[in-house]
Simulated assay, not measured.
Amino acid sequence: MEIIKGAGVWTHPGEAGNDWVEQLRTADLSVGTYCIPAGGLDTQSPHTEDEIYVVTAGRARIETPGRTAEVGPGAVIFVPAGEEHRFTEVTEDLVLLVMFGPAYGSRSPSRGRENA
């Protein structure tokens, strides 16, 4: 058992614009926090792993090629591996608890070469 400290808690991104911090990593799962300030831009690309977001604070829209939805505290969003997605219209500092299965980046071709 492990208590994951800091997961889902706002961290001001500073000059970077957004902030991603991974708090737990195993072969099959990673957990982290992604923060986007109000008015900020989400610049992420599709991931090679399935992903679940839990909105712990803030408000925004999430957009995929087939759907757009308003999200706020308590929203839980599943994004399958490879699906384009982006948070837009961030009206309040957005804090997302993020879970990847398997661990973030573990399926990416470049990561596989690094471990070979």
Rank of each mutant, 00 (worst) to 15 (best):
M1F: 15
E2T: 15
I3F: 15
I3G: 15
I4R: 08
K5L: 12
K5W: 08
A7D: 05
G8V: 06
W10Y: 09
W10H: 03
T11K: 14
P13G: 01
G14K: 07
E15W: 06
A16L: 10
G17Q: 07
D19Q: 11
V21F: 03
E22R: 07
E22H: 03
Q23A: 15
L24N: 09
L24H: 14
R25F: 10
R25S: 12
T26Q: 15
T26K: 14
A27Q: 13
V31Q: 00
G32S: 08
G32Y: 00
T33V: 00
T33R: 00
T33E: 02
Y34D: 00
Y34V: 00
Y34L: 00
C35W: 07
C35H: 10
I36W: 08
P37I: 07
P37Q: 08
A38S: 15
G39E: 06
L41Y: 06
D42M: 00
T43R: 11
Q44P: 04
Q44D: 11
S45H: 14
P46M: 07
P46F: 09
P46C: 11
H47I: 07
H47L: 12
H47Y: 11
T48L: 10
T48V: 14
E49T: 08
E49C: 05
D50T: 02
D50L: 03
D50M: 03
E51G: 08
E51F: 06
I52M: 04
V54A: 03
V54R: 01
V54I: 13
A57P: 11
G58H: 05
G58K: 07
G58P: 13
R59F: 01
A60M: 08
I62D: 01
I62M: 05
G66T: 11
G66Q: 10
R67N: 10
R67T: 07
T68R: 13
T68L: 12
E70T: 14
E70S: 14
G72E: 11
G72W: 06
P73I: 02
G74A: 08
V76E: 04
V76H: 03
I77H: 01
F78Y: 11
F78R: 02
P80R: 12
P80N: 09
G82P: 06
E83L: 05
E83Q: 06
E83F: 01
E84H: 12
H85Y: 07
H85E: 03
R86G: 00
F87V: 01
F87W: 01
E89L: 05
V90D: 05
V90I: 12
V90R: 04
T91K: 10
T91Q: 13
T91N: 09
E92I: 12
E92N: 12
L94N: 06
V95P: 04
V95Q: 01
L96P: 00
L96M: 00
L97C: 04
L97I: 02
V98Q: 01
M99W: 02
M99S: 12
M99Y: 05
F100M: 10
F100Y: 14
G105F: 02
S106E: 10
S106N: 13
R107S: 12
S108N: 08
P109D: 09
S110H: 14
R113F: 07
R113G: 09
R113L: 12
E114I: 07
A116H: 10
A116L: 13
